[in-house]
Design a protein around this nucleic acid. Structure first.
Lengths: 187, 187
DNA sequence: CTCTTACTTCAGAACTTTGTGAATATACGA
DNA sequence: TCGTATATTCACAAAGTTCTGAAGTAAGAG
């Protein structure tokens, strides 16, 4: 389906400022591209600070602040002013981390990338992957240093902490599920 | 105090292999510099993976695997084969993150850097700092997107999750304290 | 008060990472 | 089966980061 309008309609900051149609302030106010972009870059900066690469961070922030929660590759490139190659790399990374998923639009080669509204942050806590790797490294440490040495004992305690953490996180996420449904309904 | 032996005795891999003095394998076995170094570099690599800069990661791993839990700048430089400048920078970073503390040896200009055995990993969870910054960024997001827009609602929920997290972490650390004393005694 | 040891700061070289454009692969529609 | 719209891969240039050597600062020892 060749639809140039589809490609051009991206809601990014490149969109020309529209004339204020209705001064009615009671309904959801129109998205302000500049404000959105400011947020995107600011939030991305926090993610970078926390260790995420820049481009995945920006892509993710853009998705998070999009109304439908999905954007196409072209829309992302337009909004963030980057090449398709950069988008491709970023999305691959985010998908590996389970922070976004990819959907194919039926009857098109175009892909949509989606942030799983209520689930992406679980991926953050299910950094179980990270915790597991740390545990493995610490076990190796206890081993090479000897469980009876001071250093070995220090490391064994750290290891115990991570194992504890691991269990706690699971329980905590269950509590969150309950808490969440009270506040937001089971949507 | 001018004491060259003190500087030279660092337990790093540069130390010449000692002749096996006692074949007695029942006591805590002698630290094997090669094994220690392997662990240090491996653990540092995990920390790097998780977002820490390389040099702080290596310094930290070295401290963690030292028997007394402290090392001097010279010892670190020797063991890791880096300049004093690099050690200085790394330690400054780690101290800011509350992962190590600095102690001055009385009657000497020499400083010791210490990993607070049972407390450093609390610094990891008291990444409250990080959580707080994320919360701030998300609040700004809800604001600029409008709390009544789909994107705004998505962000409000994420924000709620972080606020929940924040409280849970505190409670969890208290539980850990108890758990820890059962297992390791109140040392 | 001066010497010496130890830590810190800083400019710049070496290395690493990141994003681009061009070429390539994939898959839908005709 | 081919043509076209997308997405992906790759080599390389640009940008950023990290570590070093040298100069600077601080503080105990004589």
């Amino acid at each position: 389906m060749t639809d140039p309008k589809e490609t051009a309609r991206a809601a990014g900051p490149a969109r020309p400022a529209e004339p204020a149609e209705s001064p009615d302030a009671a309904r959801p106010r129109r998205r302000d591209p500049v404000a959105v972009s400011r947020f995107v870059e600011g939030f991305a900066a926090q993610l970078v600070e926390a260790g995420m690469q820049r481009m995945p961070a920006r892509v993710f922030a853009a998705l998070l602040s999009s109304d439908p929660g999905t954007l196409t590759s072209a829309e992302l490139g337009e909004q963030l002013q980057v090449s398709p190659a950069a988008v491709s790399g970023a999305v691959r990374y985010l998908a590996q981390q389970h922070m976004v998923s990819r959907e194919r639009e039926p009857g098109s080669r175009r892909e949509r990338y989606r942030v799983h509204g209520d689930q992406w942050y679980k991926a953050l806590t299910s950094r179980e992957t990270v915790i597991r790797r740390w545990e493995a490294a610490l076990r190796e440490g206890v081993d090479s240093l000897g469980a009876d040495s001071p250093a070995g004992r220090r490391m064994a305690e750290t290891l115990a902490f991570f194992e504890f953490l691991d269990g706690e996180i699971t329980a905590m996420m269950e509590r969150w599920q309950v808490h969440r449904e009270e506040r937001f309904g089971g949507r």
